[in-house]
């Protein structure tokens, strides 16, 4: 039985919801708009929302002054690299936990989760010193390794909750029909697992892209991803609002778009399956 909702009420809710939604989104919109202003217009009083001379010079300026594309590439390589490496390690693990659970599977899962609760400052110094001594400081390789490890528990957990939903009956039917372990994995399991793996990949790229503890502490000029590059605007010279906005817009746009596609997975991944 659908609840009868008066149109009047629906209109009022629409008005309130849109007002709040736009207010929450406003800082992002404002950053986007400011990125197309000149520096003078960016601090003009009164500020103008849309009526200004739109320019793209900030985008060119940010690139020419600071080699923006290098940092963008670092972000892409580090977030994708750590996610793919994580998936490579986690898929077999999650697979075996979901389909061949042993006595200790649950304990292992809980323990993996507990590693995620280790505050990063608890291991900051040893990691920093190890990186310094092995030459991994300010390298993409080093960050890929660290981010793989910190996101590995989330990857295993997300995959596990997805794999759990694949009905075991189908596997048994395939086995009855004489499927070998390999053909079972390739033809039966993989097609059903792909959506789960894709969502896991998406969420972890987002998390790695925005990670801002290790990226800030373990990189300098060479391997700095966008999180660390943007941080350099905390001590700027001269007017910089428009350039900060341009750099920020480029840094958040790709992940904002990915994020909107992964709303549902976000809930599941970040609550370790506790809320679906």
């Amino acid at each position: 039985m659908a609840r009868a909702v008066s149109n009047r009420r629906k209109l009022i809710v629409t008005l309130i919801a849109w007002t709040i939604g736009l207010a929450i989104f406003f800082p992002i919109l404002w950053t986007f708009l400011t990125s197309f202003k000149t520096e003078a217009e960016a601090i003009a009083s009164p500020p103008s929302l849309f009526l200004f001379d739109w320019t793209t010079e900030n985008y060119a300026e940010v690139q020419s002054r600071s080699n923006y594309s290098l940092h963008f590439a670092n972000s892409v390589i580090i977030s994708l690299g750590s996610t793919l490496l994580g998936l490579l390690i986690a898929i077999p693990a999650a697979w075996s936990m979901a389909f061949v659970p042993g006595k200790h599977t649950k304990d292992i899962l809980m323990w993996m989760l507990s590693t995620k609760m280790l505050p990063p400052v608890g291991v900051l110094i040893p990691i920093y010193l190890m990186f310094r001594d092995t030459g991994l400081l300010d390298t993409r390789m080093g960050l890929v390794l660290v981010l793989t490890l910190i996101n590995l528990p989330i990857i295993v957990w997300m995959l596990y909750t997805y794999f759990k939903e694949i009905p075991v009956d189908i596997l048994e039917a395939a086995r009855m029909d004489g499927a070998t372990l390999w053909s079972e994995i390739i033809y039966v399991l993989t097609p059903m697992a792909v959506p789960g793996i894709a969502s896991t990949l998406l969420l972890n790229v987002i998390l790695a892209w925005n990670e801002a503890f290790w990226t800030l502490n373990l990189t300098a000029a060479k391997a700095a991803p966008l999180t660390a590059f943007i941080a350099s605007y905390s001590s700027p010279e001269g007017l910089f609002y428009a350039k900060l906005s341009a750099a920020s817009t480029m840094a958040i746009a790709p992940i904002l778009i990915l994020g909107w596609f992964s709303q549902k997975q976000l809930v599941r991944g970040l609550t370790f399956g506790a809320v679906k």
């Binding site: 629906k10 800082p27 404002w30 987002i206 660390a228 840094a251």
Partner: peptide, 29 residues
Amino acid sequence: FFGQGIVRILVIAPFFVMPTVSALVWKNM
């Protein structure tokens, strides 16, 4: 209400903004 999907997208957007960007945008602008 009208435009539920869009408002939902607007509301969750800040979660995807990297911490350094949101902090600097709030601080300065």
